[in-house]
Amino acid sequence: MKIVESQSAVLSNFEVYQHLTEQRDRYKKAKRRGPPNLETVVRELLQYMRTHPGPLSQDPLPYSRGCISKLLARLRPYNLAKGEVVMLLNLRPASVAALNTVVEDMAERFNEEQQEAIVTAIADVLGQFPAAEAQEDGEAAGDVDMDDTTAA
């Protein structure tokens, strides 16, 4: 065994996820199984990625093939480091507070407007969990119904 290049590229979770699911489909079609150690690690890794706070747990998948380049184009003016963008893709921070853990020295590098703009850019391109809003909507709808019935 010879290591030719210890790090030839960095992958985001989504790219790994895609590779693994494609591999699974290919194996299924050919009706064959990989070695047991491969099956174990792939199963555990997919389980990890599909756990709740991770964006890949959302169904349907919020990411698509073109979304990485789209996000890069949107974030170009802010001069984020490559590592920071990879983390943005992996964690998809939904608020300024969450963004703070990912972006180093955020308060010094960006003013509040820029921070907000980054968060909206992420939500636009990568989507977000609908949970909180949907619940409020549901309650609001319920309220309307109640009003309707009392009015009627």
Binding site: V4, E5, S8
Partner: peptide, 8 residues
Amino acid sequence: MFILTKIS
């Protein structure tokens, strides 16, 4: 989190 490593 993930990288690619080239090996022969």
